[in-house]
């Protein structure tokens, strides 16, 4: 995803979903909506996140076509929220997402299909299940939410 949020013009309403840090990142966009006199809503995601997930899904599903959503959350919390957003019906063209903080990566073991979570930037890792030495690739599967790990040494 883009590193900087981009303001998408001519939507009938804008939504912002973020935590404290996320709001500061989205702030330029919120200001733009205010300047344009666009209709918008902000939902602040505090500490009790698990509890709020159903409420968020409900809030999102009540929206009408023509709505545009910005999400900015810690990387670790972003993925489950994205699944919710898409399940409700927002398409890639109807929202932008951004993460902040520590980022990790899932690696799909080419031999045993299990997933090992590693810090972003690792190049070679051992599969935590079958212990094969894997070379982390940039080939990504959205379904597995993981990058493919190839045999590192023959």
């Amino acid at each position: 995803m883009k590193n900087q949020p981009i303001f998408v013009q001519s939507k009938r309403k804008y939504l912002f979903l973020a935590d404290q840090k996320g709001l500061t990142i989205l702030n330029p966009i919120i200001e733009q909506a205010i300047i344009n006199n666009d209709s918008f809503e902000v939902v602040f995601l505090g500490k009790q996140k698990e509890f709020l997930h159903t409420d968020i899904a409900h809030w999102l599903s009540q929206q009408k076509m023509g709505t545009y959503l910005y999400v900015c959350l810690p990387w670790k919390e972003l993925h489950p929220i994205k699944l919710k957003i898409e399940e409700v019906g927002f398409s890639e063209e109807e929202y932008q997402w951004f993460g902040h903080g520590d980022k990790s990566k899932n690696v799909f073991c080419c031999r045993c299909h299990e997933i090992t979570e590693v810090a972003n930037g690792e190049v070679e890792i051992n599969c935590q299940y079958c212990h094969l030495l894997l070379e982390v690739s940039d080939h990504y599967s959205a379904l597995r939410h993981a990058y493919l790990g190839y045999v590192a040494k023959l």
Partner: peptide, 13 residues
């Protein structure tokens, strides 16, 4: 190639 990894992917992916 791995069918299990490629499942659900688009042609380009």
């Amino acid at each position: 190639w791995s069918l299990a990894f490629d499942l659900g992917m688009s042609f380009r992916e």
